[in-house]
Structure formats: structure tokens, C-alpha cells
Design a protein around this nucleic acid. Structure first.
Lengths: 341, 341
DNA sequence: ACGCGCAGCGGAAAGCTTTCCGCAACTCGC
DNA sequence: GCGAGTTGCGGAAAGCTTTCCGCTGCGCGT
């Protein structure tokens, strides 16, 4: 049944073959209305024979909804966007929804353009996602469809923004280091201008204070999200003369750099120093020697949760407002095995 | 202008406000037909005032095309799919097309389901993408829209499959090692069951043969795509007693493992051994010490090219058939600086 | 002054599906 | 055997836009 564009088989063809009206065929194929089961079978058989597939455009036009959500990424999709998309796609596919993907590339103009086409396509809802937890301009209040920000924070408190909880994640890491016998813990992290770095630092400080333990060097070592900085920071730490037996790093990359520098300086992980990262980025935690204990941000779950909220909003339940934080999860590996001391 | 769903502004509202017929309004807004410029202005002003945005569903239904292409990923989108998507999105956005994304997750049933939905939505074309160059089942011949396989190879020679050229890439790597003075080159790569690994090995062998140089150990070291295997392979190589001054690795991960093992054994890169990887995976090549010379698969360009072909096919030009290979590109970094020997 | 042509716009159909309303026939109860 | 209710289906409108055709009125040529 080869058919080019423009001569696709319509429900009228099916109806004619089955000897019924288009309305009846529609009911038969969608299991609605009052029809003899024999009629139903005849229509279904005709549709089968002709290879009929409902034109979802026409249906959407009629129904007033498209079973489509737009996903607007601010920065090109990267390492953080992927798990979000995965989770969202999962939740949406379960609701028979499709994803229209647009990559804003950090350009507001482009983003506005995409927003218009998505609305023109009459998407049922929107997910806005990024790679940073720092606030971003809202898409606006007077949109005709619900919007959820996932791994992105709208600057309008009336929007719903869903984020992982960096402070809680840091708490997990610190308490785990303490539980494995570490008492002198340092914090090496990314640039202070990033909210994520500040939150993780705050969580670190709070958890240490709660346990009555000090933060080595009295402050986080701010730097960048790279292995090079991890190596550099470890060197700084060792040269400082400060004693330490645990390091919580703001990312797996940093932690891996720290691990390399420590090993090359003869400091054993986990025997002498316990090490925890953030991200659970497989290539980093597995490549690290020893394999890295880390804080998983649960981004897939975050994407899933965001999409689920959006689905409920599309069904008519109003959307909550404000920022919702989802908990992180600790994944233990060899870099923090119980200290023998 | 807040409006919920179901009461969106239509072109009829615009027409009424501008005092013209809907047909005229359509012409005015789309720059078609013969209209006084004053009429045009009035319509545009009315549209502006009401916040009108064309219902693209209705337009698509009328035009018979949707300005949408479906992207079907076989395995969840990951490291390889991202640049493909980026390039494709770029080419498509330039043609005012949107992307409907579906993640098949390696499940044929799910893939078939998505295929039906995409066709139901009347996409104008399809891009199928994966993460392996090994042949995969064709989507079928009798589809109503053109299909391009990008970073995926259909088992039907009548389909168009676009792939990077692994053999050519390997040739680049080998000739570069030779050009920097290496003469005793080994090849450490992934599992032999992967076509990509076999192709890279074949390219390696061919380039060495062309130069009249041997392959150290006489055969590739097959293993897996991991740093661990890279470290292991380097150890095997050193223990074999064979002399070598260059290693071409089947991936950046392997190369990084090799670099680590060599450094820890006191073998200097690039002074004593030149090292080349494949992928140009930033986190690997920059994390590697020294930074890694590598073969870039040009996946963004591949995605762009695939989408461009698809666009042309949608415009009516028939699609080529068979497998098209796009060249790789060498990116030189510190790991292969000219040998001083 | 008459006719031709064109600019400018309106009307209607088409694209495909769904839903609402209504009609015909049939069943059941008495 | 007749009225009421039900079952089963058809017809038509609606959803929104675009395109095709045709109509009106005006300008211009002769």
C-alpha cells in the first residue's frame, strides 16, 4: 500500500469500503457510540486493509488539543539536559504525548521565536530546561498553556520551577564522610558565581556545623568545574599544611582531579582521605581511581516529575507555584570505604 | 490578552476587526494576493492588537505538510546522538522546521509505535539515528515520507545511510603518527564485534601497509571502550617486550587509560610515545595528560548534512540511496608533538 | 461614450476528523 | 397490534486556515 503525500487514505475511504458513513467509521475506530459489533469489525477490517492511520492533525484541530508538549532548552542540550529529557519523555510517552524539541541556545530572541511557533502548533504544555540553577527570565504569565521549569528557575515566583536540592545533597555527602570516620573535611568546588556552587557550599557548612566539626581552611576552595582545578586544589590543600581526611568536591570532575593529585602525592584514597563528588557522571566516577562515591542529582526523576506535573496541569488541575526541590541521592563507591583509623 | 485554551484568537476575529473577509485577512498576513497596502496594514494591526498567532494545525491540514520532521533514536539519546541532533536541529531550524523527538530505547515494538504516531502526525520526513554503525533493520520501503539514517546504517541498501568514515579517520591518525616521526605503532581498540572497531582497525592496517611500516604485535588489541581497558592494554604492551613509539587508540577513553598507565610506568608522552584517540570527547581529551590528539568524527556536520538531504527530499528532489561516508578530521594536541628522536 | 482589463476583495470549498442531533427500525410490554 | 423506549446509524456542522474563482468598480484607450 504505497501512497505518496497528498493521497493518504482517509476515514472516508475506510467508511466507503466498509459501507458506512464517516461518522460511524470514526466511532468504530475509536470505540465510541452505539454500534453493532459486526459493524465495528467491518470498519476495523477496512481500515486494516487500506492501511489507514488517523490524521492526528485533523483530530487535534477538532479536539482542541494536540497531545504534544514543547521542550525548550535554554543552552543546547548537554550532559544535564539528557537525563531530564529521558525522564520527561518517559512520563509523557506513558500519557501518549509527544515531544517537540527546541534548542534556544541561550539566545532570548531565538527562544521567543520558538515559543511562538510552539504556541502556533498548539502544544498542550511547555517544559523549560537549562543546565544551571540560576534564575532565568520567565516565559511570561499570560501563556495559554501550562509551563514547568525543570532544572531551570524562573525569576517569576508564580511559575513552577523544579530543581534538585543542592544543599540537601551536600548534607548527604558530608554526613556520609562523617559516618565513615572523617573529621577534618575540606570542600573544593566550582565558581562562586554559580548558585549551585554556593548552595553546595552552604549545605556543607550547615552539615558540618550541625556535627560540630570544622571546615578545613575555614572556607570552600572556589574554582572551576574541571579536573585541572581539582588537581590544583588538592595541591593547594596539601601545601597548606592543614590536616584533612575527607574532601567533598562540587563535581565529579573536580573529585577526579583531586583523586589523581592525591594518588600521585602518595596520599591514599580512601584509607587516608575520603572523597565524594557530585553528579554521578558515569564516565567520571568509573574512570576515577578509586571509583567515586558521589551525589546523584536524580535528574531523570526530576524530568519525570516535571512532566507528570505538566500532564496533570494539562488535565486541568492547576499548577503549584514557586520552587520545588527534589532530594538528591548518595551513591557509595570505593572512594569512601570506612576509614580504618 | 490572557486567553485560555478553546477561545484562542482566530483569523476570523482579525478579519472582523479589520473589516475584511477571512480570506483577505489570510492573504494580508501571508503577503499573498492583490491587496491595497492600506488594507494589509489594517489587517496586520488588527492581528497585532488581538495577539493573533496562526493556528499551524489548520494550516498544515490545508497545506498537506507540517514543517515537522520526526527524529527516531534507537538507543536513548546519549553522547553520540547529541551532536547529531544539534547539527540536524540547526539545519532544520534554518528551514523553519521543527523536530518531533522520539526515543525508541532499542525496543523494536516501541519504535514501530512511534513510527505510527509520527506518520499520524504527518511529519514531512524522518531521521533515524543511533549510536552504532552496525546495520539495523530498515524502517521499511513503503513509507509516505523520506527517511535518512544518520549515524545508523539501514540494512536495506535502498535507504540512505549517512555515517562517518572510520577507515579514513584511522588513516588520518596513522599518517599523523608517522608524520611526527613514529615508526613502531600499536592499535588498542574496542570489541571486535563492533563494526566501528573493525573499520578503524582496517584503516590502521591499510595506512601502515601503505607506508611499509609494521603494526606492533601484528594485530590490534581488541578490548572494550573503557579507560580500564586502556590501562590494561598499555601494561600488556609494555610487558610484551615489543618496542613501540606510537599508539592509536579506538577511543578517547581508551587513549586516556593508556596515557595514565604509560605515565605511571615512566614512559613519556609525547616524547617517547605518540598517542591518538578517537571521538574528540572534550572531557576526555582535555582531562587527559597530556591533552589528547584525536580523530573528530564530525558528528555535528553529519547531523547537519543528514537534515539537509532530508530537506531537499522533502522539497521533492529524490533521495540518493546507499551508504554515504563523511570524512573525519584530525585535531592535534600535545600528545603527538613532533618526536625529538 | 463604450468596452476592455485589472486591481481589490468576498464567498465558498477543501483539508480530515469528531460530535451532536435526529431518524428509522426494532423490541418489549400490555 | 400499538405506544414507548432503545439500538444503530447517517447527516451535518464545527474546528481554522488557505486557495480558487468570480464579482465589482475603476481607469484607460480609442
Amino acid at each position: 500500500m504505497v501512497r505518496g503525500r497528498g493521497n493518504a487514505v482517509t476515514i472516508n475511504d475506510v467508511a466507503r469500503l466498509a459501507g458506512v458513513s464517516p461518522g460511524t467509521a470514526s466511532k468504530a475506530l475509536n470505540g465510541r457510540g452505539q454500534l453493532r459489533s459486526e459493524t465495528r469489525r467491518r470498519v476495523v477490517a477496512a481500515a486494516e486493509q487500506l492501511g489507514f492511520h488517523t490524521n492526528l492533525l485533523a483530530r487535534s484541530l477538532q479536539e482542541g488539543r494536540t497531545y504534544t508538549v514543547g521542550v525548550l532548552t535554554t543552552d543546547s542540550f548537554g550532559r544535564f539536559t539528557i537525563p531530564i529529557m529521558l525522564g520527561a519523555e518517559d512520563a509523557l510517552a506513558a500519557g501518549q504525548m509527544s515531544v517537540l524539541l527546541c534548542d534556544g541556545r541561550g539566545d532570548r530572541i531565538r527562544e521567543q521565536h520558538y515559543l511562538r511557533t510552539l504556541l502556533g502548533r498548539r502544544v498542550d504544555g511547555l517544559i523549560v530546561t537549562g543546565r544551571t540553577t540560576d534564575p532565568r527570565p520567565s516565559l511570561g504569565r499570560d501563556l495559554p498553556v501550562p509551563v514547568v521549569y525543570a532544572l531551570a528557575r524562573s525569576d517569576d515566583p508564580d511559575d513552577l520551577s523544579m530543581l534538585h536540592d543542592d544543599q540537601q545533597g551536600a548534607g548527604l555527602a558530608i554526613r556520609h564522610l562523617l559516618a565513615t570516620g572523617r573529621r577534618r573535611i575540606a570542600h573544593v568546588t566550582g565558581p562562586e558565581r554559580h548558585l549551585a556552587a554556593r548552595d553546595r557550599a552552604a549545605g556543607t557548612v550547615a552539615a558540618l556545623a550541625a556535627a560540630g566539626e570544622p571546615l578545613i581552611l575555614d572556607q570552600p576552595l572556589w574554582g572551576e568545574w574541571s579536573e585541572r582545578w581539582g588537581r590544583q586544589a588538592a595541591t593547594i590543600l596539601m601545601r597548606s599544611g592543614a590536616e584533612f581526611d575527607g574532601i567533598f568536591c562540587g563535581s565529579d570532575q573536580i573529585a577526579r582531579g583531586v583523586a589523581d593529585a592525591l594518588r600521585e602525592a602518595g596520599r591514599r584514597v580512601p584509607e587516608e582521605v575520603g572523597l565524594v563528588g557530585v553528579d554521578n557522571w558515569e564516565v567520571m566516577v568509573e574512570g576515577c581511581r578509586p571509583p567515586l562515591t558521589t551525589v546523584d542529582l536524580n535528574l531523570t526523576e526530576l524530568g519525570h516529575a516535571a512532566a507528570s506535573k505538566l500532564l496533570r496541569a494539562i488535565e486541568g488541575h492547576p499548577l503549584e507555584k514557586g520552587v520545588q526541590l527534589l532530594p538528591c541521592r548518595l551513591v557509595t563507591r570505593h572512594s569512601t570505604e570506612m576509614s580504618p583509623l
